[in-house]
């Protein structure tokens, strides 16, 4: 498929992906420690928003467990590496397996019932996860979490400073590429069909329950992988990060950016992540209020989000409707 955007480079996806990676990773080498830290978290939010957008925006499933899976990934890699002393690749595989097991356990029973049920179950999972972390004794480190560990050498590589930021840049680009490919395939259309009209989707041959379970498991695993990467950003994992508040912030990012659109998820994540940095000097801790206003404004004025506004402007210059 040729890109319809006149500004897009006519390059193969591989070249575009490599270019995006070089730019995103390269930027890290021009930043100090503080900005590298902020930048890494920004990239992680973008990854999370991309995955959550696929689940919520593309597949229409309202779930609040994304940060729980982020946490399962983060805690499991740390526990497997430093308490069970597994080698790195095995620890990563076990962490992913754990995410898959939890995702299936949540998705299979709840997708059989109607949509609202998934929201409730994942809300409960999100809360329960925090309780387990807090009460987990020496395994999870309780309210203080786990600290004082370092990323081990992986195949002799010591990834530090901007080099670790480059790993996160790779994660963003790979996540984007995988999700865009899925979206432009029969699977992505099936997800959108399930979102738009499940009964018609079934009549067209789409296995609605299976599609939902796959989308949920896949995006939950992506969140888990993000969590594994996050575990070595702060070199500490503790419960508040993985709570329900961040799950709501993720939902806001996707809605403000434009649900169902990958570029929208990126824009929403970047904007809402950076907003507190700009707003704090002006309004102190009241930036949550600004978020609320933004979300309500997006829903009322432009349900397609910021990307919807961009589309309208672009259409005016191009004269043809885009998807």
């Amino acid at each position: 498929m040729k890109s319809e955007n006149p500004l897009a480079l006519r390059a193969t996806p591989l070249i575009r992906g490599a270019g995006a990676f070089i730019v995103l990773a390269g930027a890290a080498f021009f930043m100090g420690d503080y900005h590298n830290d902020v930048y890494r978290k920004l990239l992680l939010w973008v990854t999370l928003a991309l995955g959550y957008n696929f689940l919520f925006g593309v597949c229409g499933q309202v779930a609040f467990s994304h940060f729980a899976f982020y946490g399962i990934g983060a805690y499991s890699i740390v526990i497997f590496l430093f308490q069970l002393h597994l080698p790195f690749p095995l620890a990563a595989i076990c962490g992913i397996a754990l995410c898959i097991a939890f995702a299936l356990a949540v998705a299979i029973p709840s997708t059989r019932l109607e949509g609202f049920y998934l929201a409730l179950v994942t809300l409960a999972l999100g809360q329960l996860f925090i309780v387990v972390l807090n009460e987990g004794g020496t395994v999870t480190g309780g309210t203080g979490g786990i600290a004082n560990y370092r990323l081990p050498e992986i195949y002799g590589l010591r990834l530090r400073g901007p080099w670790y930021t480059a790993v996160i840049a790779l994660l963003v680009v790979a996540t984007y590429a995988v999700l865009v490919r899925l979206d432009r395939s029969w699977f992505g259309r099936a997800c959108r069909a399930v979102r738009d009209n499940p009964e018609a989707a079934a009549a067209m041959g789409v296995d609605v329950a299976r599609t939902k379970v796959i989308a949920f498991t896949l995006t939950s695993v992506l969140a888990g992988i993000g969590g594994m990467v996050y575990a070595f950003v702060d070199n500490t994992v503790n419960p508040p990060i993985f709570g329900i508040e961040n799950a709501f912030l993720l939902l806001f990012m996707v809605i403000v950016g434009g649900a169902g659109r990958h570029a929208g998820a990126v824009i929403g994540a970047v904007l809402l992540f950076l907003l507190p940095f700009w707003l704090s000097p002006l309004v102190g801790h009241h930036h949550a209020l600004v978020f609320g206003v933004l979300v309500v404004a997006a829903i009322l004025l432009e349900p397609r989000g910021l990307i919807g506004i961009y589309d309208r402007v672009a259409d005016r210059y191009k004269g043809s409707p885009s998807r």
């Binding site: 029969w186 259309r189 099936a190 959108r192 069909a193 979102r195 738009d196 009209n197 009964e199 018609a200 989707a201 067209m204 041959g205 789409v206 169902g260 998807r323």
Partner: peptide, 18 residues
């Protein structure tokens, strides 16, 4: 019962899902 979030051609492609 169209799939409202997709263009015409993608609606038809959902029909070819199987």
């Amino acid at each position: 019962r169209p799939f409202a979030g997709m263009p015409v051609i993608d609606n038809v492609l959902v029909g070819a899902h199987t």
